[in-house]
Structure formats: structure tokens, C-alpha cells
């Protein structure tokens, strides 16, 4: 992890990256913009906004990427997707899915053909952006409540997911394998 990320305290909404303002004036050192927010708050905002494009444009003044997309683009620790997310298979939505009127249970929008969806071990499908904020805090499928791991491991997965999205240091367990599929 780069030292600049380690030292960052704020999120710059214009640069879309974590920054450390040089003074108490809270101005981005890269673009001199003052549209900054403390990282922990910005993370919360982006999670709850990740599917609401309208609200996101309000925050940024421009069309915004989802939380995961932002981090993948801007933060070194997100260049490689975390194993916990990787372990969930992605499937491509087919004509049959569309024909059956399959919806993402979280946003309740129909899945579109040829787009990707995340498949839980119980086979329930979600948009990545829809299931991710839930899995950060919970350890279960929203539809059938299947626990992804036994309860004792739940906090471990949660910690792993939080550290995955936490822009400060301490992500030494980045490469730890967390298999969301509990059938092992």
C-alpha cells in the first residue's frame, strides 16, 4: 500500500481519491478543491449511495461510479478484488433469466440480459453493488438467510470485508483466503 493512502484522512470528491489535506483548511492537495469529507463518513455515504446514481451525481456534480468501481480505479488495495468477493461466482444473465422475470431482490429491478450477477451459495442472484453493502455488515443471504459461514466465522468475514474497503493501513490479511461458500 502506498504511503499516501496510509496517511490519507479525507476523500476528495473531485479527484475521487483519498487525500491528506495539508492544513486545517481542508483543501485537496491535488486540485485545491474543498469538496472533502472524512474518509470514514465518505465510505458510509458511498455505500448507501452506491446504487443511487441520482444521489451520487448530487454529491459529485457528475455521473459517479459505484463504490467498488471507485476503489478499484483509485486505490491500490482495490486493484485486486478481494478473495471473499471473488469466491462468489458471477453468472451472465441469459435470455431464460430475463424471460422468467428474474429480479435483483435488493433493488427489485429486472436483470438485464448479458449483464453479470453475483450468485450466492444458495443460488440466489444479486447485482454486485446491491449485495455488497449487505455482506459488509451481515453474513447471510437476504432472501433465504443462509449463513455464508458458521456464526463464529462471521465476524472474520466481516472484518476481512471491512479491511478490504478500509483505505488506511493494516490490511495485512489481504491475501488471506476467505471462501464464502461454506460447503467445504
Amino acid at each position: 500500500m502506498s504511503s499516501s493512502v496510509n496517511e490519507s484522512t479525507h476523500w476528495c470528491y473531485r479527484c475521487r481519491q483519498p487525500v491528506r489535506p495539508p492544513t486545517l483548511d481542508l483543501i485537496c492537495p491535488s486540485c485545491d478543491n474543498d469538496f472533502l469529507q472524512e474518509l470514514s463518513e465518505a465510505l458510509g455515504n458511498m455505500q448507501s449511495h452506491s446504487r443511487d446514481r441520482l444521489a451520487q451525481s448530487f454529491y459529485t456534480g457528475m455521473p459517479m461510479l459505484g463504490l467498488s468501481e471507485i476503489y478499484k480505479q483509485r486505490s491500490p488495495i482495490f486493484l485486486n478484488p478481494h478473495p471473499a468477493i471473488e469466491a462468489m461466482p458471477s453468472i451472465t444473465i441469459t435470455r431464460r433469466h430475463v424471460k422468467s422475470g428474474l429480479q435483483c431482490p435488493v433493488c427489485q429491478e429486472d436483470f438485464e440480459r448479458d449483464t453479470e450477477a453475483k450468485q450466492m451459495p444458495c443460488n440466489h442472484l444479486y447485482h454486485f453493488d446491491c449485495i455488497f453493502p449487505w455482506l459488509v455488515q451481515h453474513n447471510s443471504c437476504p432472501v433465504c438467510r443462509l449463513q455464508l459461514r458458521p456464526e463464529s466465522n462471521g465476524s472474520k468475514i466481516m472484518r476481512a470485508l471491512i479491511s478490504f474497503f478500509w483505505p488506511f493501513g493494516g490490511s495485512s490479511d489481504q491475501n488471506t483466503q476467505y471462501n464464502l461458500d461454506s460447503d467445504d
Binding site: N45, S48, H49, D52, L54, V106, C107, Q108
Partner: peptide
């Protein structure tokens, strides 16, 4: 921020 698109749909 509430997901108002979903709320609208729900209503």
C-alpha cells in the same frame, strides 16, 4: 440516502 427508486417501485 434512501434508495428512492426502489421505494417508488414498492409503493
Amino acid at each position: 440516502m434512501v434508495d428512492f427508486a426502489r421505494v417508488q417501485k414498492e409503493l
